[in-house]
Amino acid sequence: MNFTVTSEIKNSVAELTLSGSLDSGSASVFQAEIQKVAGNVPTEMVLRVSELSFMASAGLRMIVFAKQKLGPSVQIYLVKPQDQIIDTLQMTGFIHSVHIVDKYPV
């Protein structure tokens, strides 16, 4: 399934909506979007991922990239991730880098 990502800035919060499959082929697209919103110096980043069906290793790395790009004080929220995504985040330990929420604002 093709990967798509859109973004907007609302009240200093970067909101990105992801869908499809995030792997090594699509990670660079996601990375470019992160870099674009980072220019606005957001205070929080919200990833709406309910339509994201798969996240490979390269996708996980983009979350770490976002954290490093935005700085440790910027919290990252994953809104309504699918079970497979949560499982992957748990098993690899990346879950400690993000907040899993059902809606945002929390």
Partner: peptide, 13 residues
């Protein structure tokens, strides 16, 4: 996560 090829990340974590 071996089936996803993420064993390196899992071990390092």
């Amino acid at each position: 996560t071996g089936k996803y090829g993420m064993q390196v990340d899992e071990l390092k974590t």
